[in-house]
Design a protein around this nucleic acid. Sequence first.
DNA 1: CGAGATATTGACTAGGCTCAATTGAAGTGG
DNA 2: CCACTTCAATTGAGCCTAGTCAATATCTCG
Lengths: 195, 195
Amino acid sequence: MLFKAGDPFHAIYAIRSGCMKSVVTRKGGAEQVSGFYMVGELLGLDGMGRGRYDCSAIALEDTVVCVLPFPLLEQLAHERPSFQHRLYAVLSREISRNHNVMLLLGTMRAEERLAAFLLSLSSRFARRDHSPFEFALRMTREDIGSYLGLTLETISRLFGRFRNAGLLEIDQRKVRIRDHAGLKALLSEGGAPAD
Amino acid sequence: MLFKAGDPFHAIYAIRSGCMKSVVTRKGGAEQVSGFYMVGELLGLDGMGRGRYDCSAIALEDTVVCVLPFPLLEQLAHERPSFQHRLYAVLSREISRNHNVMLLLGTMRAEERLAAFLLSLSSRFARRDHSPFEFALRMTREDIGSYLGLTLETISRLFGRFRNAGLLEIDQRKVRIRDHAGLKALLSEGGAPAD
DNA sequence: CGAGATATTGACTAGGCTCAATTGAAGTGG
DNA sequence: CCACTTCAATTGAGCCTAGTCAATATCTCG
């Protein structure tokens, strides 16, 4: 665990290698995975508002992070307007990303959610010179379910269904996407027909 | 409509009077209300990442906003570090707020969602010297449902159930909270018992 | 090899959605 | 002023998706 919800905020973290998840906890004990982070992505952006992190960051494998002390970032931002601009953009993107998750949780059915999740992973791996069609999940079914607002059983069943439909191969955590277009098709269905 | 998803971003907006909603649209047509904004709150924070708004802002009644051109904000931030700090905090808070919505959409059942929504409204009105127990909703059942990831029928039924349980009175859009503690109790249930 | 996670699969249940009809409120024009 | 339209809200019946509970299988690691 890199930091815990409630810890005082003084830095954001950039992942140099490995993979992490962030978890928000509700008074009452219910938890939800609020994001998965891979190489090059930033954790802890939620902390600067209240001066405390409101989620916990947990490594999913051996992970190396780069500590970016917030006072230093603010100083750099002050000195270089272009850096200031970048930093605002990074925060704003996180908001956009959250909107997508809200859309997923609020409007999609289980199949669509998992398809969207896999496609998102796929494109993120692609941007990092990994194969977009073959990669290893670093998280458990339970983590995926929590992130997508589903149960681990549902995730497991969906993987089975996707395999039977010839959309992908899955062996434990190794995923191989066989029909990228087919996954995409699952997304648009239910909305307006593509015209 | 103040701005539309895809419009080029050049300003954020502060509400001076009235009430607005923001709506994200999915390729495929599905829409979701991503937030309700009242006096003093900021809209359009999601736009600075990509240079385009990714949601639309729609007034729910006659509304006056204050236009805050982003270049101006950046300049002010550069000149006054304390202002820069505030601006980062505002963005970060929006991320925290989104985490709460994700938690709501991902882990709560219908009753809990509506209770959480009403309590949130209540405390926001309180902070603005309105009564926290008596206020008028500015949005339709459909808007509420969309925001909470439920259908308008479910919202309507829940209002009925809450009324029968003596938790509140509701006449069209006028709400009167009769049992604040009772609403809160709906939230913690389902999680771990308070100990 | 054994213990404890993690995954898979089945049977059953229930919460919330869909479809549909009705009522109510607010606005429009003759 | 009142029919007429339109939009919003309520209510009911039935269904379906995903959750729950439970049993088993498989992995990982000490």
